[in-house]
């Protein structure tokens, strides 16, 4: 499907289109956040500890008197990075492996699919946790772990799609006209399986944000002074009996971003195949 057609159809899926705008804004905000935030994220306003939202501190302050609005904006960086790395690694590693496996077929494909099935039988978050634990606890390693656990899913999807298109007339024609397998995969197979992969990437983006938040919440991701929404919730949890309000905004930030990724995925799926709309 042509990209333009897809975008035009997406435009008519209002919720999905709004989500796309939200996500693009979020990416933009996280890039310019360091320049526009109203406070220093580590500055402690000790006269205003655990303040409720007010005109000065829009989202209130935490138990050290740090501005929560500032920290939410900066925490978006970790979420966006996790989302992007979480889909880049599978796109760069999983998709090519899946295409090759599906195109080649035979014993290589059998073994490859068994390995993919095996990795997929691990609970995603547990495997991410274990990989982070092995690599060493840090935000960067958590993001790599997220990328690794999403890779088999993309590989399986790409392989399945490749199986569907590899007997198509245009692939046969390319073969007859003497194109090598590498060229066929790059030029003919990949463009024709891209749509479902884009849909999957959208869902994985939001799942990556969720997993990053979970890992940071457990102390396995962002380490102070790195800021992450999950880390902010960890901090809010220790203050839950004192100031329950602290957990409000980081949670909303995660929820909205995950929702946006899911809505975008749903919308893209309909944009690609309008018959999906019924369900």
């Amino acid at each position: 499907m042509r990209f333009k057609v897809m975008m035009r159809r997406l435009y008519y899926e209002r919720l999905a289109f709004l989500s796309l705008i939200y996500l693009l804004l979020l990416i933009l905000l996280s890039i310019i956040a360091p320049f526009i935030v109203p406070f220093d994220p580590e500055a402690q306003d000790l006269n205003n500890i655990m303040a409720a939202p007010n005109s000065h501190h829009w989202f209130g302050t935490d138990e050290l008197g740090r501005d929560i609005f500032t920290r939410i904006l900066l925490g978006g960086q970790a979420a966006i990075q996790a989302g992007l790395i979480g889909i880049m690694i599978p796109l760069l590693v999983g998709v090519p492996l899946g295409v090759i496996s599906g195109y080649m077929g035979g014993i290589v494909d059998d073994i490859f699919m068994r390995v993919v099935d095996a990795i997929l039988s691990f609970p995603a978050i547990l495997l991410a946790l274990a990989i982070t634990g092995a690599l060493g606890v840090s935000l960067w390693n958590a993001m790599i772990a997220i990328g690794i656990i999403f890779t088999p899913q993309f590989a399986r999807l790409a392989r399945g799609q490749t199986l569907q298109v590899r007997r198509e007339p245009y692939v046969e024609a390319a073969k007859i006209s003497g194109s090598g397998p590498f060229w066929i995969m790059v030029r003919h197979i990949f463009p024709n399986i891209a749509s479902p992969i884009i849909v999957q990437a959208s869902f994985s983006f939001s799942l990556a944000i969720l997993v990053e938040a979970s890992l940071s919440f457990l102390g396995m991701g962002a380490q102070s002074p790195q800021i992450s929404w999950g880390g902010m919730l960890h901090q809010a949890y220790s203050m839950i009996f004192v100031n329950p309000l602290m957990m409000l905004f980081p949670g909303i930030a995660i929820l909205l971003s995950v929702l946006a990724g899911n809505f975008l995925g749903d919308g893209l799926r309909i944009a690609i195949d309008p018959r999906m709309k019924r369900t």
């Binding site: 957990m247 949670g251 995950v258």
Partner: peptide, 14 residues
């Protein structure tokens, strides 16, 4: 499917 389960947990605890 979108709500972080630990955030839901915190809300319910409160």
């Amino acid at each position: 499917t979108a709500i972080p389960n630990f955030w839901l947990a915190m809300i319910l605890v409160v």
